[in-house]
Amino acid sequence: MLNAELVGRTFPGVDSTLVTQESIAAFAAVVGETNLEVAPPTYAISITLNQSQTLLQDSGLDWTRVVHGDQRFEIFRPIVAGDSLFCSSTIESARVMAGNEIVSVRSDLHSGSELVVSTWSTLVVRA
């Protein structure tokens, strides 16, 4: 179970992630995208989900039973190669429904002081 005291807390990212042209190309190749000037719209998840996993595992959540409930992106500008992105994550809510633990996490990707992409993930820990 997630430590309930962590709900509402924001965890600043420790390291920035440098977005490479190769990582954009690899993500784009999966979906058949040939425009490599910007990252595909869901590319941010490759940064935010890993950080959420670390954060939630450290907070007591059993990641082996996690399934993704829903996902939303707000893209203020497209991610491009050369961006150095800091990810800060906030546990917005945690509740139990029918034995399943449901946790919502918001992650913000900043380049310097500029907010580039916000993501909201609902993760369900199956009972």
Partner: peptide
Amino acid sequence: GMLTMALAGKYISDVAGPAAVKEFGARF
């Protein structure tokens, strides 16, 4: 789930290019 969403992301990117997508959300 995020692969399904990435493929849907390609579909919506094809409407006006990947840089045109401002908001995108879905439930799995």
